[in-house]
């Protein structure tokens, strides 16, 4: 039997049209534009641009500075992703026993989520402020002079710390929801079967959290790579100088400050390829939907 309903064949297309239009104008067109301008060299005095083929990419790959930035980005992403996931998981497991369904607690965590990255960066900058920062004082007490913005590794430390601090609540809430969706009967059965809490965690809880974990892994990598712009901008006070930068920040610095449109576009394309790889990976993951229950 054919079911009654709003079934005109043109209706779904009409409903999708606004979204598709926006995606084409604001996604595909700019993306193609970035690819196109990556093949051109902008005249430094603004007299048009000339086609240089792959030269921008060649310069990029040979640039030692770019390699240094890429290496730091890798280090930064690994640190932020690993620590924010690990700490959030640990906390979620500990809190799970105490906080079954405590909404006010989650609301509190959401507030950290609502803090803009530049404001988070500002908080970090204040904690490491040379004259009166709390962290500077702590390091000072331990006999180390902490110099944010002057010492390369100190600045990197601040950036990583702030980025982790900002991301933990998001991961925490997801892990907590994941934990609380594990059926009570399963937990009890595991309790009867198994002796130690640690082995119970690694053999039962951890695999059950895998879908949440994979999803968060991708989210965190994306976050560390792209969404930390605001944090970095404030921590280094907008002065790239000798400070650690990530790839995204370098695109901004070269394109808007240095007016190297071609080079910046080439870097954008490199980032896009990176995102494409991550996207395909995530796509496969969603399709497969790792499920155990």
């Amino acid at each position: 039997m054919k079911r009654a309903g709003f079934a005109q064949p043109w209706l779904p297309m009409l409903l999708l049209l606004p979204q598709l239009t926006i995606i084409v104008i604001f996604f595909y067109w700019p993306a193609l534009e970035a690819v196109r301008s990556s093949f051109y060299l902008e005249d430094p005095f603004g007299f048009g641009s000339s086609f240089v083929g792959l030269e921008n990419y060649q310069i990029l790959l040979e640039s030692r500075e770019y390699r240094r930035v890429a290496l730091f980005t890798l280090f930064f992403t690994l640190c932020v992703t690993f620590f924010s996931l690990a700490i959030a998981l640990l906390l979620a497991v500990k809190a799970d026993k105490v906080l079954r369904g405590a909404t006010s607690y989650k609301t509190l965590l959401m507030w950290v989520y609502a803090i803009a990255p530049p404001v988070a960066g500002l908080m970090g900058a204040m904690l490491v402020n040379h004259s009166n920062g709390m962290i500077t004082h702590l390091f000072g007490a331990a006999g180390y002079e902490f110099r944010n913005g002057l010492n390369y590794s100190d600045t990197a430390f601040t950036m990583i710390l702030v980025a982790i601090w900002k991301q933990i609540p998001v991961n925490f809430i997801f892990f907590l929801s994941g934990l609380q969706s594990i059926p009570v009967s399963l937990r009890e059965a595991a309790k009867i079967d198994n002796k130690s809490g640690t082995s119970r965690f690694w053999t039962i809880t951890f695999p059950l959290l895998a879908p949440t974990g994979f999803f968060l892994l991708i989210t965190n990598i994306t976050y560390a790579l792209f969404d930390t712009f605001g944090i970095i901008d404030v921590v280094i006070k907008g002065e790239p100088g000798n400070n650690p930068l990530t790839l995204v920040y370098k695109v901004y610095v070269d394109g808007f400050r240095g007016n190297d449109l071609g080079g910046s576009s080439a870097q954008s394309v490199v980032l896009m390829v990176l995102v494409l790889a991550l996207t395909v990976f995530q796509f496969r993951l969603i399709e497969k939907r790792i499920h155990y229950t």
């Binding site: 067109w29 700019p30 970035a34 712009f229 910046s264 394309v269």
Partner: peptide
């Protein structure tokens, strides 16, 4: 990444 789209 927003950075890719900023210039275009």
């Amino acid at each position: 990444p927003a950075a890719v789209f900023a210039l275009p």
